[in-house]
Structure formats: C-alpha cells, structure tokens
Design a binder for these strands. Structure first.
Length: 286
DNA sequence: AAACCAACCAACCGCGTTCTC
DNA sequence: TGAGAACGCGGTTGGTTGGTT
C-alpha cells in the first residue's frame, strides 16, 4: 500500500513543545475530545503534525500521567512483564497505571535492561544472589518533576515560546532501602530457595498471576502523583478485577489476587488455547 | 573553570494494522 | 472490495544535564 509521509514537514514546528502549545492542545482536547489527530492539530491551530500531537498528549498531557519516581514495585513488575511480553511496551504500560509506553521503554533501555543483564550474569556467578534484584534498585528521586498537572496550569512561569522542560532530574542521592510491602511471596514469586524446573515453572505461573489488570482510563482531571501510587499488594477483589484474560480466568482469581493451585494448571491452556504449544509471547492479549 | 563523558529522555521516524469511504 | 487515511507501536536520534577529570 502506498504511503505518504505522515505529514508535510513544511511550516510545521518540530522539537520540544512550548507551554503555549501544550495549553492549546490540552484545552482543545478537553473541549473536543481526542482522536482525529490530523485535523485536530489543524483545527487547534497547532503547527504540529498529528502524530506529534498524539504523542505529546499520550505521553505528557493526558490526565493521570505519572512521571518519574518509578517505584521498586513497578520496576519488578516491568521486569516480569518484559520477561513475559518482550518489547511490547504498550502492553506493559497498560498494566502500569499512569505510565506510558515511551517512559517504560526509555527506563528499560537506560536503566532496567542493564540492571537485568547485570543481575542475570551475576546470578550465574553467584547463585546466592538469586533475589538480588532488590538490592541494586534505582532510588526514588527526591526532586519533584513536571507532571501532567503542571501542563494544566501549575507550570512555573516561562517565556511564552520557550520549550517546556519535562525532563526528570537524574537521581543522585541514595536513600536507604525500604522494605516494600509487595514481597516476592505476596506477588506469587518463587521463593529464593526454589531451584531448577520448579523455580522456572513457579515463576511462569507467578508472572501470570501477578499481572495486574490493564490500567483503567482515569476520568478525573489532573490528579496528584501520590494519588496514583501503585500498591501491588492489592486484593483483586478490591480493585474490581478487569481480566486481561477475559472472564474465564478472572473467575479463577481469589480475593487475594491468586489462583487456586488447581486453577493455575489450566491457565496456560486458557492463554494459549487448547493444545497450544507456543510460548506466552505469542499470546494474543486482547 | 573548562572540557569531556555518560546518562537520561523527549521527540522523531518508519512500518504494520485498522478504519473509512 | 480495495485504496487511502488514520492510528498505534517500537526503534532510534539528538539535545540536555550532571558528574568526573
């Protein structure tokens, strides 16, 4: 199929978005809704291509966006989901409320990927370091960073046309490691002493069981970052479990967010279909 | 103080998929 | 039904920042 460039670059702004552009985009979408990005940018009077508008909205301006300060729990979840899904960032992001695929992708490429690589090579050398992922985690940044709420009006005064600096500050301070409520056990992880096939099998199961539901679209206006903190030590029943695996599997989830052991056995078959012999990476999630 | 380096991340790009006419 | 448009995704790039020498 013939394909023309997404947009003519003539006369269009490129590069960092300015506060003014953000305001225009936000107010236009609040009034008219999102979608139809091509004509949206024209009608809003933005000299940006539709793709650029969409990206800006989805990654920064959309209500509920949580930026920076990726918690240890989220980190663990990303690692598990990546192990399960591969580089399907949008799927991974869909299970991390307030996180965007771009942010997760960036975080993986710059931090987590290296960390995982390092841990995996280390674990070969030192089997005792099996659970060491928790010991070398990125510390939460102490400095607040720009959030979606800033884009909605709490922006610090800036020259009208100056680019918005959305960059998160690099974290250099090291804080003490705090014991997280979401222990491996609470997430259904294999114990550190599990070995061999049992561990692998248990982990595969744990990944499936620990998957949170897809992020539910936040309907409220810009919310404080704290309101979106992800507590992985949740009860599925409390959250109102929206099954990524459709109803059949959701029915097998107990209030503690786990499957009964006999239900777990049939999980992979449900995911992969009868006689499915592919791996979970090939599973059609939606 | 300046130069250099590495880390970070916003934005761009190209391609596949889905939608619309 | 097919062509074109729109959308969505993942990979990559380039600018900025903070740390080190």
């Amino acid at each position: 199929m013939g394909r023309k460039p997404c947009c003519s670059k003539e006369g269009l702004n490129r590069g960092p978005w300015t506060a003014t552009e953000d305001d225009i985009l936000v107010s236009y979408i609040q009034e008219h809704g999102e979608g139809k990005w091509g004509c949206l940018s024209r009608r809003a009077g933005l000299k940006r291509c539709g793709k650029s508008c969409r990206l800006r909205w989805l990654n920064y301006l959309r209500p509920g966006i949580k930026r920076g300060n990726i918690s240890e729990d989220e980190e663990e979840l990303i690692i598990r989901l990546h192990r399960l899904l591969g580089n399907r960032w949008s799927l991974i992001a869909g299970r991390l409320p307030g996180r965007t695929d771009n942010e997760i992708k960036n975080y993986w490429n710059t931090t987590l990927g290296k960390k995982v690589l390092k841990n995996s090579s280390r674990s070969k050398d030192d089997s005792e370091a099996a659970g060491a992922g928790a010991s070398s985690r990125r510390r939460p940044c102490s400095e607040p960073i720009r959030t979606a709420s800033d884009a909605a009006g709490r922006r610090s005064p800036e020259p009208e046309a100056s680019p918005v600096r959305t960059k998160a500050l690099r974290c250099v301070t090291r804080l003490p490691v705090v014991q997280q409520p979401a222990t491996p056990a609470s997430l259904g992880c294999p114990s550190e002493t599990a070995t061999g096939d049992d561990a692998a099998r248990a982990e595969q199961t744990a990944i499936k069981v620990a998957l949170p539901p897809p992020a539910v679209e936040v309907k409220q206006d810009f919310v404080a970052e704290d309101d979106l903190s992800l507590d992985l030590d949740f009860h599925m029943g409390e959250l109102g479990f929206l099954s990524p695996w459709r109803g059949e599997i959701a029915n097998g989830v107990g209030l503690d967010g786990r499957f009964a052991s006999d239900e777990v056995d049939g999980l992979e078959e449900l995911l992969l279909g009868p006689g499915g012999d592919g791996d979970l990476d090939e599973f059609a999630w939606f």
